[in-house]
Design a binder for these strands. Structure first.
Lengths: 344, 344
DNA sequence: TTGTAGGCGTTATCAA
DNA sequence: TTGATAACGCCTACAA
C-alpha cells in the first residue's frame, strides 16, 4: 500500500551547458545577461533550455545570490474579502513576472506577525507587503532589517517603514456619516464587527462627525468576524436597545447587508424609516435591493500598485513620495436616499 | 533620494555552532534530531539559537536536502470565496507546522496551469494541492513526476493522480433540483455564472433531474464571474424569456442572492411565487431574508484535510482509500419552502 | 555522542 | 566573450 514518491530527473544548468557545448557559467549568463553572450552561443543555449525543459532551481539561485524572488505578503486573513481583493491585485501584478508572492496570515495576532516576519527574513525576500500601519516596534525593526522594499497597504499614516499605499479610514467614515446627516437622519448608530485597527479608526470618524453635529452616539460592536449573519444580529440588538434609531453606518458591507435583511424581515422600510450605509463597496452592495450606500476603497489597486512600487524600487527608481493616497469615494445608493436628488 | 536597502547581518548555523562551542553538524542535529544530542549540548545550542535569533536558511535547506517545505496550492482565483475558504482550510492546517503553502492562480487557463506546475516542480515541493479534477495530460504528467504527495480537491472522480478530496457536483445539484420539484415547482430554470468544470457538472445534474421528471429545461449562463450583480441580470433576462418560471437553481449563492433581490425589486414573492436555491452555503445564504436554500459543501474541511493527507503521506501513512468523499448537505431554508413542513 | 568531508545548483569574482 | 574557482548555508554519509 505504501506508495513511493519518486521524482523525475530534473535537469540542471550543467545539463544545459553540456547540451550546448559551453560551460555552466556561460549558460547561466545566457539566461541572466543575454547581451553579454555571443548571439550564436545564446541561440544554442536557448535551444538546449527549450529542449530539456530546463527550469532554474530557485533554492540554488537564492543561496548563491543572497536574494530570492519571494514577495512576502502579510495579511490578517485570506477569507475576508477585503484582503482577498488586495491579494488579487498583488497576484495579478506579479503575473508572469519574476516575483512570487507568498502569503502568510497573522490571524490578527501581532505575536504571529513577528514570527512570520522573522521567517520571511530568512528567505531573503525581494520585497514585503504588509497590511495595515499598526506594526509593533519589533515588527518594524525586522522589516527594516530585511534590506528590501517594504510597502504598508490599506491605510496611510505618518512614519512609514519604507513605502505606503492606502486610503484614510476616519475621513471616509466621516463622509458616510455626514451623508446620512445630510439626508436628514438624526439617530445614527454604528455597527461594527471584528474591530481591527482600521475599524477602530472608522468608528473614530463616526464619533467625530456625530459629535460635531451634536447628535447622540450609538455604538454596537462585536469581536466576531464581519458577516451578513452578524449584521442581522447586531441590527436586532440595536433595535432592542434603541428602537428609535433611524440610520446605521457599518463597518463593512456584509454587516450592512445583514442589517438590511433584518429590516426587511421586520417590515422596516429602507431608506424611508431606516438609512443604511456600509463600507468597502463589495459587489453585493451594488446588487442589493435597495442598493447599499457605501464607501469605495481601492483594494485591488492598492495590491497591484504595491507590487509595482516594489518592482520599481528594486529597479532603482523609488517614487519621490513614498506615501500614496488612494483616497475613497462615497457611493450613494438607494439605501440612504431619502431626499429628492439635489435637495438636502 | 535613492534609498539603499541594506540587510541586517543574518546569523548562520556556524554562528550558532561557534557560540555554543560545538561543530556545525551538531548544531544542525540539535535542531532536527534533538534526541541524538547530549542534553547538555542541546541546551547550549538552543540557548545560542535563542540568543542570536537564528532562523535556518530555507534555500540552503532545500538545496542540501533536495526537498523544500513548500506546499504548492494551485487554484483558479483567490477572489472567489469558494477558493478563499479552501485556502483558509489549507493555511490553518499548515498553521505553525513546518509546511509553507504557496499559492498560484491559473485564472482558469490550463496553459497557465502547466506553466505554474513546471515552476513548482523546480521548487521541489513537499506536496501539491490542486483544485479540480480536469487537469490536462501534460499537467498530470508533471504532477506525477514531482515525486511528492498530490491532492486534487473540490471534486472527486475516477483516476486520481494520487489522492483526492471533495464532493460530487452533479448529485448535489440533483438533490437541490429534486427538492424544488418536491416543493411543487414545475418550471425550474438554471442560472449559471462562469461555467467552470464544476459548474458544468452541476448543470448536468440539473438536466438529469429535470429530464427524469419530464419537466422543461431552462438554462441561462454567462461567462462572467459569479456575483450578486450578475445574478440580478440573469434573473431579469430569465423573466424576459420565460415569464412563467416558478423556480431557479443557481450555480452559486451570490447569483441566487442576486436573483432574490431582483424578485424583491419586482415584487415577486419568494418562495410563494418563485423558489430560489443556490449552491455553496456561503454566509450570505443564511443571512438573507428569506434565507436561501442551498447546498453545503465542505470547502474549509477539504482544504484542511488535504493538508493533513499530505502530512500523513509524507510521514509514511498514506490513507487506505486515497479518495475521500466529503459529501454535501441540502440546506433547506425559507426561499424554497412553499409547502408546510413534512408535506410534499 | 560528535565531527569531518563532500556536495546540492547556482552566481560572483577573477582571469584568460 | 568565455571559463575556472570559490563561495552561498545546510544536510547526508561516514568516521571517530
Amino acid at each position: 500500500m505504501a506508495k513511493k514518491y519518486k521524482s523525475n530527473q530534473i535537469h540542471t544548468l550543467r545539463d544545459v551547458a553540456r547540451a550546448s557545448g559551453v560551460s555552466a557559467v556561460t549558460a547561466s549568463r545566457a539566461l541572466r545577461t543575454p547581451d553579454r553572450v555571443a548571439p550564436e552561443t545564446l541561440a544554442r543555449v536557448r535551444a538546449a533550455v527549450a529542449r530539456l525543459g530546463y527550469v532554474p532551481n530557485p533554492a540554488a539561485q537564492t543561496l548563491a545570490s543572497g536574494r530570492s524572488r519571494v514577495i512576502g505578503v502579510v495579511i490578517p486573513s485570506v477569507t475576508n474579502s477585503v484582503f482577498a481583493d488586495l491579494l488579487r491585485g498583488v497576484m495579478d501584478a506579479a503575473g508572469d513576472g519574476p516575483f512570487q508572492p507568498q502569503i502568510a496570515n497573522t490571524r490578527y495576532l501581532s505575536s504571529r506577525e513577528e514570527a512570520i516576519l522573522r521567517l520571511f527574513a530568512s528567505q531573503r525576500p525581494a520585497g514585503m507587503i504588509v497590511a495595515g500601519i499598526d506594526q509593533s516596534d519589533a515588527s518594524r525593526a525586522i522589516l527594516r532589517g530585511m534590506g528590501c522594499p517594504v510597502v504598508q497597504v490599506m491605510e496611510i499614516g505618518p512614519d512609514p517603514i519604507d513605502m505606503m499605499i492606502g486610503g484614510p479610514q476616519a475621513e471616509a467614515a466621516r463622509a458616510a456619516v455626514a451623508h446620512l446627516i445630510d439626508q436628514g437622519y438624526r439617530r445614527i448608530a454604528f455597527l461594527g464587527a471584528r474591530m481591527d485597527p482600521r475599524a477602530q479608526r472608522r468608528l473614530f470618524g463616526y464619533r467625530q462627525e456625530i459629535a460635531s453635529a451634536g447628535l447622540p452616539e450609538r455604538v454596537l460592536t462585536t469581536p466576531r468576524p464581519s458577516s451578513v449573519t452578524v449584521g442581522r444580529q447586531l441590527m436586532g440588538d440595536l433595535l432592542a436597545l434603541h428602537p428609535d434609531t433611524d440610520a446605521v453606518f457599518s463597518n463593512n458591507d456584509d454587516v450592512a447587508l445583514g442589517a438590511l435583511f433584518e429590516c426587511t424581515a421586520r417590515g422596516i422600510r429602507v431608506p424611508a424609516q431606516m438609512g443604511i450605509a456600509g463600507f468597502n463597496d463589495l459587489d453585493l452592495a451594488a446588487g442589493a435591493e435597495p442598493g447599499l450606500t457605501t464607501v469605495r476603497t481601492h483594494r485591488y489597486r492598492m495590491g497591484s500598485e504595491a507590487m509595482a512600487m516594489i518592482a520599481a524600487a528594486l529597479a532603482g527608481d523609488r517614487p519621490a513620495d513614498p506615501v500614496r493616497d488612494t483616497g475613497f469615494e462615497l457611493v450613494v445608493r438607494a439605501s440612504t436616499r431619502r431626499l429628492p436628488e439635489g435637495a438636502g
